[in-house]
């Protein structure tokens, strides 16, 4: 009996250690970037920096905060996460509520559901979408990043499934009292779905913060591009520079010349908002997954 207990605890120790190492593998790359951003350029280039800054300096951040292009892209990103998720949420709720009604109450429901749902199965693809965005006059416009994806259909279906699981009696009682559909949505459904709404808002916010492709595709010049696109340009250019030569010495020189520390500082600043809201999201993201799998 005693021996078995010992075996189990040995297993637990190994299991815990292995999983903890796995968890560290998710944390260490971020710490590495953080350490590089606070280190001296020379120390970085010679590969001395691991997970703790070497020759601590704020030079990279001072440089980055003076960089007007980066700063502007940051403002665009903040504007985007203010406007984008609000519109996403508004349209998600407005679409999900009628679609959550039974077929008998809303006869056209099935047709509408399929119209929305089909967009998750098939799409026009990059070039036809680009042409429509261009025809609607959104090239080089802030709204090119907001309108084309304004209805997040996946979240509409999630919200619809959630609404359908709310007790019908509440709604029926409200009718008897003479409430309109708008009042029922606003006064009964929304207050009951605060957690789901919070989940969807946070996911939309992160999606908007992270999106870079629309900012690249729909803008002819870097003016007006969000930070994610700015960083994409930066990352691709530096990695291209480094990859153009296989010669080890040239590479060494290049990385000394390159602004690895400032890039690290920019990467860290781009991560910061997500790292800040992440702890608050923890209780929601499990719900996000589970909500998506709820059956209608």
């Amino acid at each position: 009996m005693k021996r078995m207990y010992k075996n189990i605890s040995l297993f637990s120790v190994i299991n815990g250690t292995v999983l903890l190492l796995l968890a560290l593998s998710c944390l260490l790359p971020i710490l590495n970037v953080l350490a590089i951003s606070f280190s001296d350029r020379g120390a970085v280039a010679s590969g001395k920096v691991g997970f703790w800054p070497v020759d601590f300096t704020l030079a990279a951040y001072e440089y980055v905060l003076k960089d007007v292009a980066f700063f502007k892209s940051m403002l665009v990103s903040f504007a985007r996460i203010l406007v984008g998720p609000v519109l996403n949420l508004l349209l998600t709720i407005l679409c999900a509520y009628p679609l959550s009604k039974p077929d008998s109450r809303f006869r056209a429901r099935k047709i509408y559901v399929w119209i929305f749902y089909f967009t998750t199965l098939f799409g026009g693809g990059m070039i036809p979408t680009y042409i429509i965005v261009s025809k609607t006059g959104l090239i080089d416009s802030f709204w090119s990043m907001i309108l084309p994806g304004a209805v997040p259909v996946g979240y509409v279906i999630m919200m619809m499934n959630f609404f359908r699981n709310l007790p019908r009696e509440l709604e029926e009682a409200a009718w008897v009292d003479g409430a309109t559909q708008w009042q029922i949505l606003w006064k009964i459904y929304i207050p009951l779905s605060k957690a789901s709404i919070a989940t969807i808002s946070l996911f939309c916010l992160i999606n908007h913060w992270n999106s870079w492709f629309d900012g690249m595709l729909y803008f002819n010049n870097t003016e007006g591009q969000p930070m994610a696109t700015y960083l994409h340009n930066l990352v691709v250019n530096t990695s291209l520079d480094a990859m153009k030569s296989t010669d080890f010495e040239t590479l060494q020189q290049l990385s000394q010349l390159s602004t690895q520390t400032t890039q690290a500082a920019q990467l860290f600043l781009a991560m910061l908002p997500i790292l800040v809201i992440y702890p608050f999201m923890r209780k929601y993201f499990a719900q996000g997954v589970v909500m998506g799998s709820v059956k209608g």
């Binding site: 970037v33 870079w212 960083l231 990352v235 990385s255 690290a264």
Partner: peptide, 28 residues
């Protein structure tokens, strides 16, 4: 909590990180 974090970071940021840590000259 820690293992879920990379899911929420975009490939732009992770790309930048991997270019750094996988660099043949001075990557970790």
């Amino acid at each position: 909590t820690v293992t879920c974090l990379p899911y929420f970071l975009s490939w732009v940021i992770l790309g930048g990180i991997f270019v750094n840590i996988l660099s043949p000259s001075n990557g970790v």
